[in-house]
C-alpha cells in the first residue's frame, strides 16, 4: 500500500527536474528531453489519480499524452535538424534571429 501522496511527490520532483533542465540547459536536444521528462511526470500523476479514483479514463488519457508526445518528438527533432542545417549549431543562445 503506497499512499497517493508519494506518487504525487515523485511526479512533482520529475516535473521540477524537467522545468530546471528546460531553463538551465543550452543544448536544444537536452531542452527537448527535459520537456519529455515533464510529460512523464504528468503521466505518473495521471495514472496515480486513476488508481485512486478507480477511473480507467486516466489511463486512456496517458495513452493520448503519449501519442501527442510521439508526434511532438518527431516534428521537434525534424525542426532541430533543419535548425542545425541552416545555423550549424545546437546552442539555443546562438539561434537568436528574432532577438532585439
Amino acid at each position: 500500500m503506497v499512499p497517493l501522496f508519494y506518487y504525487l511527490v515523485l511526479s512533482g520532483i520529475l516535473f521540477a527536474c524537467g522545468v530546471t533542465g528546460f531553463l538551465i540547459k543550452r543544448n536544444i536536444i537536452t531542452i527537448f528531453m527535459s520537456i519529455e521528462l515533464m510529460l512523464n511526470g504528468v503521466n505518473l500523476s495521471f495514472v496515480a489519480f486513476a488508481a485512486q479514483w478507480h477511473a480507467l479514463s486516466g489511463q486512456v488519457f496517458v495513452f493520448f499524452v503519449m501519442v501527442v508526445a510521439a508526434a511532438e518528438a518527431a516534428v521537434g527533432l525534424a525542426i532541430i535538424i533543419a535548425v542545425f542545417r541552416t545555423r550549424e549549431t545546437l546552442n539555443v543562445d546562438k539561434v537568436d534571429l528574432l532577438k532585439l
Binding site: M1, V2, P3, L4, F5, Y7, L8, A48, A50, A51, Q52, H54, L56, S57, Q59, V60, F63
Partner: peptide, 20 residues
C-alpha cells in the same frame, strides 16, 4: 489524500480497449 489500494484497479487491457 487517502492511501491507494494497489491491485484494486481493473487495469486490464480489455477494459481499456473498451473505453478507448
Amino acid at each position: 489524500t487517502q492511501p491507494v489500494a494497489l491491485g484494486a484497479l481493473p487495469g486490464h487491457p480489455k477494459d481499456i480497449a473498451q473505453l478507448l
